[in-house]
Design a protein around this nucleic acid. Structure first.
Length: 478
RNA sequence: GCCCUCAUGGUCAAGCGGUUAAGACGUCGCCCUCUCACGGCGGAAUCUGGGGUUCGAUUCCCCAUGAGGGUACCA
């Protein structure tokens, strides 16, 4: 019988979570859920020098906002804890020592200076295995003397380590190309190379899902599994997401940061949906999908092997689709805070929201689209010229008069009543409704183009402000 | 330098030996229309190059080129 699938997401708290990190976590989550398995969160903080304050909390916030829930993690014990690597130091030491006994690792007392003397012109070196064959007595003596040491992997000679990656297929690396890397650092902390193996094994991870930066070092990790006599997990490596043709997204420069997008007015669900599409294409070619649909459709076959470039334009479009799919109520709730931030805050917010729903892709665009309402004064009369509508200054002048005449006596101020009154007055004056509407819209806003027509603008502005502006424009037109 | 990997329009991508080489974003045009949008319709645009294998290569193999990753007491 198949073992229960267990995947994990193992971010290191060294900065913001960009779209690429998010996607890795998302795929691990989707794969686990699709297979009815468990998803584990592990914090990889063995490099204390690169730690960034608050980064760990950001991981929890992001996962929660993204709708990616884990079964086990630092705050959800599943019996395999602790789930924070810095709290597992004792475990790594124990296993490192055990690996030495098993012949898969050895103590190394080489100093930094000696290591640097090995550097080639390029500044890199391959460890020369200086301490690989120290006698047991010597090691014991030097340990007893308190000499600083690290524990290194003892890579076997003359073997080719291969595995079958779920997306890339067969990967082989010859042991000559693998150096005896450090497993346990002199500060007692493990390197990623060692911690990921020990933890993935101890936590029962069946499928390791991570970025391609580990594709070619996985054979090295497999040698450790072998030395321990542990069963190797399945691997699924994911191609990188780039910011352009040659640069990967990097958290160091705050690229494509999840929380930044949300702050700009993107919906978390839309961002997650978009991210899922970078490097994966569902069998049915669906693009807009709920999390449940993604779980249902997720399959390894659809994962691509080549890198992809993050394209905000497409994410904007998707976000717009989410916005348009909302009910009027839902959209109002989401948009209201942004309207409140705009200069149009004092006008009819419900009407503004109604106008914005099909006109923005990202909520943060709302202020930019509505601020104009606040600035009304003398404007260029050239705006009244509209050849196709046969509107010029003379026509506009009459039209504005007509609209004032229609609106002044109006008791109720609704879309229907305004429309009806203006249309009736236009007919009475022998003008086309469109001519009056067009002129009225300009007269109300002083803008060449507005998000919505004359009626909508009148509703947004309200009775008093609308009439005030129409009279002002009437004066302007002479 | 050495090792691993990748290569279809501007972008995401389908394709898995024989197709008019899907679809989406973006872009352009038209329709709708009081402007802007929404919506509808339509257009332009892709197999990195060279060798093989094959009756036939976008598809399989090799090389080149380009790009990414690794080669750390970073992950």
């Amino acid at each position: 019988m198949d073992k229960t699938v267990r995947t994990r997401f193992a971010p290191s708290p060294t900065g913001f979570m960009h779209i690429g990190n998010l996607r890795t976590g998302l795929y691990a989550y989707l794969f686990a859920r699709h297979n009815g398995g468990k998803f584990i969160l592990r914090i990889e903080d063995t490099d204390r020098e690169r730690m960034v304050d608050g980064a760990e909390q950001m991981v929890y916030r992001t996962l929660a906002a993204a709708g990616i829930d884990y079964d086990e993690g630092p705050d959800r014990d599943g019996g395999c804890g602790p789930y924070i690597q810095s709290e597992r130091a004792g475990i790594y030491r124990e296993y490192a020592e055990k690996l030495v006994e098993l012949g898969g690792a050895y103590y190394c007392f080489c100093t930094k200076e000696r290591l640097e003397s090995l550097n080639s012109a390029g500044g890199t070196h391959t460890y020369d295995r200086h301490c690989r064959d120290l006698s047991a007595e010597e090691v014991k003596a030097r340990l007893a003397a308190g000499e600083p040491y690290v524990i290194r992997q003892k890579v076997p000679d003359g073997v080719v380590s291969s595995y079958r990656d779920m997306v890339f297929g067969e990967i082989s690396v010859s042991s000559e190309d693998i150096e005896d890397g450090v497993l346990l650092k002199s500060d007692g902390m493990p390197t990623y190379n060692f911690a990921n193996v020990v933890d993935d094994h101890l936590m029962g991870i069946t499928h390791v899902i991570r970025g391609t930066e580990y594709l070619s070092s996985t054979p090295k990790y497999n040698l450790i599994y072998d030395a321990f006599g542990w069963e190797r997990p399945q691997y699924m490596h994911l191609p990188p997401i780039m910011k352009d043709a040659t640069r990967k997204l990097s958290k160091r420069y705050g690229d494509a940061n999840f929380e930044d997008f949300v702050a700009k007015g993107y919906l978390p669900a839309a961002v997650v949906n978009y991210v899922a599409l970078l490097g994966w294409c569902p069998k049915n070619n669906a693009e807009k999908m709920t999390m449940d649909e993604m779980i249902e459709l997720f399959d390894v076959d659809g994962i691509s092997v080549s890198s992809s470039i993050f394209d905000e334009a497409k994410m904007r479009w998707l976000n717009g689709e989410y916005l348009k799919a909302m009910t009027e109520e839902e959209f109002f709730a989401a948009a209201e805070p942004w309207i409140a931030k705009s200069k149009a805050a004092r006008f009819d917010r419900r009407e503004i929201a109604r106008l914005m729903q099909t006109r923005v892709d990202v909520l943060g665009e709302i202020p930019g689209k509505m601020d104009f309402l606040d600035e009304f004064g003398a404007y260029d009369l050239g705006m009244y010229e509209h050849k196709k509508m046969k509107v010029d200054l003379e026509v506009a002048k009459r039209a504005v008069k007509v609209s004032i005449g229609a609106l002044e006596p109006l008791a109720t101020w609704t879309e229907e009543s305004i429309k009806e009154a203006v249309a009736a007055s236009a007919e009475e004056a022998g003008m086309k409704a469109g001519q009056v509407m067009f002129s009225m819209r300009v007269a109300l806003t002083g803008q060449p183009s507005t998000p919505g027509g004359a009626i909508e603008m009148a509703v947004v502005l309200g009775r008093e402000e609308s009439l005030r502006r129409l009279r002002f424009s009437e004066g302007l037109l002479g």
